[in-house]
């Protein structure tokens, strides 16, 4: 190599400004939209798609980012949360990514958002028609830890062969007296496919049922997209004598006093001091703005 050309530099220096709206090219978006349409048509079914390599690492939301990029339009308002909060580093990073590559408006308000990308939580605020909730999914296959082989699990889904999952839940009950799955708790969608809700705490499972918003799930590394269309039945797996239950906190949020939300435990000192506060920061702030107060506020 004698002299370096400047071709590569020019290409890279143009950076985000030189990329298409929402980063992905239009052919890729079309491919993803086709997968989404199929996913919506077969609720809970994992549709393989040609996941692209994104400029953020696998496992950090590449599936969610691709789904969001494929559904975003210029008029959309985007909210991104991680662990329920708009302020966690990865949520900030993904929000900045879309602000930079699409120039669309962003918000932290659940009610004001048209597209919400999330990792590990469903907002407390009830979603409404026309909204899209995009989940980042690490392992889309609910049967993966019971059967590591894709060829096997696909067959099990095709035959609705979900006995293994029920045996696993039953073994929990036999050993602990109750089901010991606290997050990524499996659900059955529209009476057919057993689906992984992504690692949301099971506290959030009931919010998926009959939800007015469209729920889309993107797994980039595992190359799967699945969906729950609006107003679809989503049942958490259970037994007649061991019905599904959600986590309960024995105290309200220390900031806004809410008694019906999922709480983060915050260690406040090294003497065992701790308080519990809403994991959904937007919901908590809204309540405080409306005059609600907890014991630490």
């Amino acid at each position: 190599m004698t002299a370096m050309s400047t071709r590569g530099f020019a290409r890279l220096a143009s950076g985000a400004a030189g990329t298409n709206f929402g980063y992905l090219d239009e052919q890729t978006k079309r491919m993803i939209r086709r997968a989404i349409l199929k996913a919506v048509a077969i609720p809970g079914y994992q549709v393989p798609f040609a996941s692209r390599e994104m400029p953020m690492p696998y496992g950090w939301g590449t599936g969610g980012v691709q789904v969001t990029a494929a559904v975003l339009g210029p008029a959309d308002v985007l909210k991104v949360i991680d662990q329920g909060s708009d302020d966690t580093t990865n949520a900030v990073s993904i929000r900045q990514f879309f602000a930079r590559t699409s120039g669309i408006a962003t918000t932290t308000s659940t009610a004001a958002a048209s597209v919400i990308q999330t990792r590990h939580r469903i907002p407390e605020h009830r979603l409404k028609e026309g909204q899209v909730l995009v989940y980042q999914v690490p392992i889309p296959e609910p049967l993966r830890f019971l059967e590591p082989r894709e060829t096997e699990t696909r067959r099990m889904h095709a035959l609705s062969e979900y006995g293994l999952m029920h045996v696993k839940l039953y073994e929990d009950i036999a050993r602990h007296g109750h089901i010991a799955t606290t997050y990524a708790y499996p659900v059955q969608v529209a009476g057919r496919y057993v689906m992984d809700p992504s690692p949301t705490p099971k506290f959030d499972n009931p919010k998926m049922d009959d939800c007015p918003a469209l729920q889309l799930f993107g797994a980039g590394r595992e190359r799967r997209i699945y969906a729950v269309p609006p107003y679809t039945r989503v049942r958490s797996l259970e037994f007649e004598d061991h019905p599904f239950t959600v986590q309960r906190f024995d105290r309200p949020c220390a900031l806004c006093g809410a008694a019906d939300t999922y709480l983060d435990e915050v260690v406040t000192d090294d003497r065992g001091g701790r308080i519990f506060v809403c994991s959904d920061t937007d919901h908590c702030e809204e309540r405080r703005a409306a005059g609600h107060r907890g014991e630490a506020a």
Binding site: Q83, G84, R119, H120, Y183, P199, P201, E265
Partner: peptide
Amino acid sequence: LPHHVDFQAELE
């Protein structure tokens, strides 16, 4: 990445 929401569920 933060996993405290799931960790909270396991803590409980």
